[in-house]
Design a protein around this nucleic acid. Structure first.
Lengths: 202, 202
DNA sequence: CCTACCGATCGGTAGG
DNA sequence: CCTACCGATCGGTAGG
């Protein structure tokens, strides 16, 4: 059945994304992935013709999961500042529920692939640039809607929020505990002039 | 001569740091490093008894270079806000002069080693935590000196500045051009209420 | 999907 | 510092 083949492929890719957040997209090996899935290497080659094809499909699957867990919740929030806060909150929850053992797939992939060339690097770069652009659009809407002063620059604001996201991921991956996760929401709310739901308040 | 041996060791480690910013600390192989230095693998084992020892020495050398190029210039700036701005500017220059092909060594090492265990991860974590603490002390001095309101939190401010640093590195590594490098200074000066030397102004 | 295999490279060692 | 080697694993293929 086609549906079964698709589910099998998706299960493989989910495991590939998971392993990549620990070992990297280059450190991900066909042998390790096969072992984790209790199948043979050549079984994997029936789905992906080469390691590069596997890497590209892994990036696609990681993008799908990130969109589902982080972007889509933000898009459902009220346009403007609400979406800026929501994208940070959704990212924090993405980390908190430990979707992947190595934190955010793309934070790692950007640094691993950034200084390389080829289709995998291009795929990672395209996703990252799309994310920054999406956040910039949220910021633009907040300014256009009068929630933020017209002296704000959407690109700079997107850069700042990307910084909060990356600092949160780095702190979380390194510390392994949820301690850092509350800082992101506090910082971004303070920066945008939104009331903070501090701890100790219901 | 001891001095020659020390220089040789340092040259090896400089190359090891350089290669690590592209291939990672795990992707750094004894064979590749030996080839880059035009020596044999066993020649490297005369300096480092194992790959883990090499990795630890590589982290130490990267820390030395980072302190020299980023921390020390900041320490020479006026205490308080001046040091917060200076640490960002020095980091940007560290990237601009392309010290390493893969950007900031520690930005990559933190994500690569974060979800692992062992002495190499601990060494990377210790450096990163020391850096955040150092920036937090700069922020504390700025608040104590009345340059920033007492409602500011040094830890949150250090987190924000680490975010600016990480977003700058990610953008630079991915884009490969100097375009992002001016944003960091603008964002951090605006955040701290310091006058911006915008482009078009001498 | 499987077993069985290929040459290349991995970290590391023996012996000099 | 060197050559020569070890077993293990790498990405990938042949043949089923």
């Amino acid at each position: 059945m086609r549906a079964d083949g698709h589910r099998r492929r998706q299960a493989i890719l989910r495991e590939a994304v998971t392993l990549s957040t620990v070992d990297g997209l280059e450190g991900l090996s066909i042998g390790n992935l096969a072992k984790a899935l209790a199948m043979s290497k050549s079984g994997l080659y029936a789905h992906f013709g080469s390691k590069e094809e596997l890497q590209l499909a892994t990036v696609d699957e990681a993008a799908r999961i990130f969109r589902q867990e982080v972007i889509e919740p933000a898009l459902r929030a009220p346009a403007g500042v609400g979406q800026l806060v929501a994208v940070c909150d959704a990212f924090v929850e993405h980390l908190r529920r430990r979707t992947f053992p190595g934190g955010c797939f793309f934070a790692g992939a950007v640094l691993e692939m950034g200084s390389r060339s080829g289709p995998v690097k291009e795929a990672v770069a395209a996703f990252q640039q799309g994310l920054v652009q999406q956040i910039g659009e949220f910021a633009g809407a907040a300014i256009a809607g009068g929630e933020l002063p017209v002296t704000e620059d959407p690109g700079q604001l997107a850069f700042e929020i990307m910084g909060v996201i990356l600092a949160t991921n780095a702190g979380f991956v390194l510390g392994g505990d949820d301690g850092v996760l509350d800082v992101a929401g506090q910082v971004v709310r303070r920066r945008l002039g939104v009331a903070t739901d501090g701890p100790g308040r219901a």
